[in-house]
Simulated assay, not measured.
Amino acid sequence: MTTHVLPDSLAEIRDEFLELPEADRLQLLLEFSNDLPAVPARYDEHPELRERVAECQSPVYIIIDVDDEGMVAMHATAPKEAPTTRGFASILVQGITGLTSDAVLAIPDDFPQSIGLTRAVSPLRIAGMTGMLRRAKRQVAAKRAA
């Protein structure tokens, strides 16, 4: 049985949101949306490696890399016109990249509900972030098993 432990990288992001008054959390999410790292150019020729996140209304795609040491890198694309969704993708990319596959698989499934935005954004958007996390964990598990 996997113990669900929030890695430090995601705990720091969560705490950053929770330290702010609720009214200011959307601004922080917008800052994250502006900081979504670009997907490495090596994927430009391989759209088949991008997985669409169906739970998101906007076209969001994720790619997970797991290297030989089991270290994870997450990449995501989300349109600039969807800053909330893009912010959630950025939180996960920044929080997951650099973790071990075990650490990613141990991220609590309710992490998106824990960052203090459930009243600031629609449940549909939180469900989109939950879908991104679920897909990331599934891809990590599949790549680790391969």
Results as ranks from 00 to 15, higher is better:
T2R: 07
T2H: 03
T2L: 06
V5I: 14
V5G: 06
L6N: 00
D8K: 09
L10A: 03
I13R: 00
D15E: 04
E16C: 00
E16Q: 15
L18W: 11
L20H: 00
L20D: 01
A23N: 11
D24E: 15
Q27N: 12
Q27A: 08
S33K: 12
L36Y: 10
A38W: 05
A38T: 12
V39W: 00
P40D: 14
Y43N: 01
D44V: 10
E45S: 15
E48P: 09
R50Q: 15
R52I: 09
V53G: 03
V53N: 01
A54M: 10
A54E: 13
A54Y: 11
E55D: 06
E55I: 03
S58W: 01
V60Y: 00
V60P: 03
Y61E: 14
D65G: 02
E69D: 15
G70Y: 03
V72W: 05
A73D: 13
A73E: 11
A73H: 04
A76T: 02
T77C: 04
P79Y: 08
P79L: 06
K80Q: 15
E81S: 15
T85G: 08
F88E: 07
S90N: 12
L92V: 02
V93D: 06
Q94P: 12
G98P: 10
L99F: 02
T100G: 12
T100Q: 09
S101A: 14
S101Q: 01
D102H: 11
D102E: 11
A103P: 01
V104Q: 01
V104P: 03
L105I: 08
A106C: 07
P108M: 01
P108E: 06
D110R: 01
P112D: 07
Q113W: 11
L117P: 02
S122Y: 01
P123E: 07
L124W: 09
R125P: 08
I126D: 04
A127N: 13
A127L: 06
G128D: 07
M132V: 07
R134S: 13
R135N: 08
A136L: 09
K137W: 03
A142T: 04
K143D: 05
A146H: 09
